[in-house]
């Protein structure tokens, strides 16, 4: 059995599957408000729990 073509078809199938999932999740997250204002809060908060010890700066 030569799997050359099946592997190519598999790769294409996979690509479309991934693409469909990407679109699905994009729509879903947009509806859920994931792209809203507070979606990025976490990256500011991580700077706050400062280590209160002396450094060179």
């Amino acid at each position: 059995m030569d799997y050359t073509w099946p592997s190519v078809y598999f790769a294409y199938l996979f690509f479309f599957l991934m693409f469909a999932l990407a679109v699905f999740f994009f729509v879903k997250t947009a509806r859920d408000g994931y792209w809203g204002k507070d979606g990025e809060d976490i990256k500011y908060r991580m700077l706050e729990d400062g280590d209160q010890r002396r450094t060179h700066e």
Partner: peptide, 16 residues
């Protein structure tokens, strides 16, 4: 991802 924002005291570009 932890030390680049911490040492530069700059928030990460994008969490998403």
């Amino acid at each position: 991802y932890y030390f680049i924002p911490r040492t530069s005291n700059t928030p990460l570009f994008s969490h998403k």
